[in-house]
Design a protein around this nucleic acid. Structure first.
Lengths: 189, 189
DNA sequence: GTCTATAAGAAGATAGAC
DNA sequence: GTCTATCTTCTTATAGAC
């Protein structure tokens, strides 16, 4: 629990987070992460018993970031429609990464969902954070089917991200985000 | 080019197609495919020099199936709106598979797109088939932005499939397909 | 905490017998 | 065409020195 250990651990998790996103969890090896951080594989194993352990730490980090963002948006926007729009804005800000590597949430869930069901559940919890936050906004607007609307918005966002990635074309994301934006504007509240 | 070889080859490609879908390309090993078919790894290598070769054959098979379906739909439906609806109906018919393993096209593209760019292009061509077919339908309806509309429909379909997979919930697919269906009904033509 | 060395296993691929 | 045996490389993980 010394300062150095904390520093190393943090740097490892950040590097793993980056590599798992860029290459995918299964395609990013322990050695890749160690190289990225500039330490040995043996040292990496001192900090994380297994690769799954490392993924767990990455998910904890991502979860923390998501929760911080949602909390900040709650502070900045009281109008539920503004909250929905802020969600869409996030996509546009991530245009480059999405076009290159896809949505961090969607791609991780897609990868882990296949034949790695234990890890899938941990990964899905990040989706739940957005799902519940958006659901709350729709409920605030007076919708009874707020969960379905939340899933619909998530669905449109994921579809936009996937198509943007497949064609590696940021314009696709802009077009879809425009449509989502119009859809939000047209909602009753 | 004997009868036996053709039989084996066909069975191998079908098994690989199934396993690549269920486990993902990188997670399905050569040995897995050989076991599934009931032959040895060595024999599998006689038919396919490399795993990438095998994937290529799988993509050729999938491409053929897609082209056959699109051609059949063209015969069965002359009204472009009916064509769009038939596309959505395909999703509903694949509900079980999508909830368990995701969309075959979307998941393969997502997986290969990350750090395997050569294979990505081959995989993307399957998307192109649907993209062009849908675009033609929108053009037939008199839309000038037919490509954008085609991408939008693909985007909604992919989003629906991904959310359905993440939550392993077929109801999600039904809800989203209802929305897509309404969207199609509301189009001018 | 960090390193080197090494084990143990899986994966893709080849060689050669039948 | 199909098999067994083998090779090589990669990957995860451990052991032990510093």
């Amino acid at each position: 629990m010394t300062e150095h250990k904390q520093d190393s651990r943090g740097r490892i998790v950040e590097a793993a987070n980056r590599l798992f996103y860029i290459k995918g969890y299964n395609q990013a090896s322990f050695a890749d992460v160690a190289d990225e951080v500039g330490i040995s594989k043996g040292n990496l194993h001192y900090h994380f018993r297994s690769k799954d352990d490392l993924l767990d730490a990455v998910i904890v980090l991502r979860t923390k970031v998501i929760e911080q963002n949602l909390a900040r948006w709650d502070e900045q926007y009281s109008n539920p429609k503004d909250k929905l729009k802020r969600f869409v804005q996030m996509l546009l800000m991530e245009e480059d990464g999405i076009a290159r590597y896809g949505c961090p949430l969607g791609s991780l869930n897609m990868e882990l969902g296949k034949s790695q069901r234990e890890l899938r559940d941990r990964s899905r919890e990040m989706f739940d954070l957005f799902q519940r936050w958006l659901e709350k906004a729709f409920k605030q607007m007076g919708y009874k089917n707020s969960l379905s609307l939340s899933n619909h918005l998530l669905s449109m966002a994921q579809g936009a991200a996937l198509m943007t990635f497949v064609y590696a074309d940021g314009q696709l994301l802009k077009d879809e985000c425009d449509r989502i934006h119009e859809w939000i504007e047209g909602l009753d509240n």
